[in-house]
Simulated scan of single mutants.
Amino acid sequence: MNASHFSAHLRRLRKDRGLVQKDVAEALAVSVQAVSQWEKGETTPEYPKVMKLAEFLGVSLDELSWDDVETRQDPTPPSKTIVRVAGLVGAGAEIMPDYEQIPDGLYDIDVLVPVPEGAVALQVEGDSMFPRYDAGDVVICWGEPSSTTEIVGWEAAVRTSDGKRYLKRILQGQKKGTFDLESYNAPPIRGVKLEWVSRVHLVVRAGHWQRLSPREKIRLIKKATGASLKRR
């Protein structure tokens, strides 16, 4: 889901219906600040919220996700809603990707909304980021920073210089080139160097996703492709 398209379209749909941000917030049981952040493109809602939002505004997921007719006629390929979960990410649990991951990934899931090329899906292990993230959640990450200062304040999947993978909030470290990794209910990990960072944009909650068998994956791709052709 393109964040800038989504934010502009959400704002227009809300105003067209004579609604204020408080109306949307109450309907979805979120804060007004959350709705404001969606409309500014600062964050995007998790996909169950996107579905409720589309229902509340009386539009389809496609209509809510894409900003203009031209984009809707040439959407992200439908198969891009199917994402391979590449491995585990530690939120309290220590994950060593080189030794504990499966090279070809763990499994495929359908996240129901399009995600960009290159998006990375990881399954959460541990509870140090509760209540933001639970063990068994799947986080979808994309976008690498253009500068190290850009990542401060991000909730992101990271890989440290010693090869460990975590899901943390990133803060500036005391020494140049280092960062502190903050949890919600565990001590921070201080002064680490990062090899890789990717921001969390979408969360699929534990219990809201299913592993797709190869046959199911093909069926969903064919179904989505057929729907796309009909729209054109």
Rank of each mutant, 00 (worst) to 15 (best):
N2P: 05
N2Y: 04
A3W: 01
F6V: 01
H9Y: 01
L10G: 06
R11C: 07
R12W: 04
R12K: 12
K15P: 04
D16F: 06
Q21R: 13
V24T: 11
E26Q: 14
E26A: 15
E26R: 13
L28W: 08
A29P: 09
A29I: 15
A29R: 15
S31M: 12
A34I: 07
E42F: 05
E42Y: 11
T43I: 12
T44C: 04
E46Q: 08
E46P: 00
Y47C: 02
V50R: 02
M51H: 01
F56C: 14
F56E: 13
L57Q: 04
G58K: 03
S60G: 08
S60T: 15
L61W: 02
L64A: 07
S65Q: 09
S65L: 15
S65K: 02
D67T: 03
T71W: 01
P77V: 08
K80T: 01
K80A: 03
I82V: 08
R84S: 10
A86V: 14
L88Q: 09
V89A: 14
E94Q: 15
P97W: 05
D98Q: 15
E100C: 06
Q101M: 09
I102G: 00
G105C: 12
L106T: 08
Y107A: 10
D108N: 11
V111N: 03
V111D: 03
P114K: 01
V115Q: 02
V115L: 01
P116V: 03
A119M: 10
V120Y: 11
G126Y: 04
G126C: 07
D127L: 03
S128Q: 06
F130D: 15
P131W: 05
P131C: 05
R132N: 13
D137N: 05
D137G: 05
V139H: 01
P145M: 06
S146Q: 09
T148F: 05
T148S: 13
T149Y: 03
W154R: 00
A156I: 09
V158E: 07
D162S: 12
K164F: 06
R165L: 11
L167I: 09
K168A: 08
K168F: 07
K168D: 08
R169A: 10
I170F: 03
L171H: 14
Q172R: 12
Q174N: 12
Q174D: 14
Q174A: 12
K176H: 10
T178K: 07
T178C: 06
F179A: 05
E182T: 00
E182D: 07
S183P: 02
Y184R: 11
N185F: 02
R190S: 12
V192K: 09
L194A: 06
S198D: 03
V203G: 05
R205V: 04
A206E: 10
A206M: 02
G207S: 07
H208N: 12
Q210V: 03
P214K: 04
K217N: 07
I218Y: 11
L220Q: 15
L220K: 14
K222F: 13
G226M: 13
G226E: 14
G226Y: 13
S228D: 10
R232P: 04
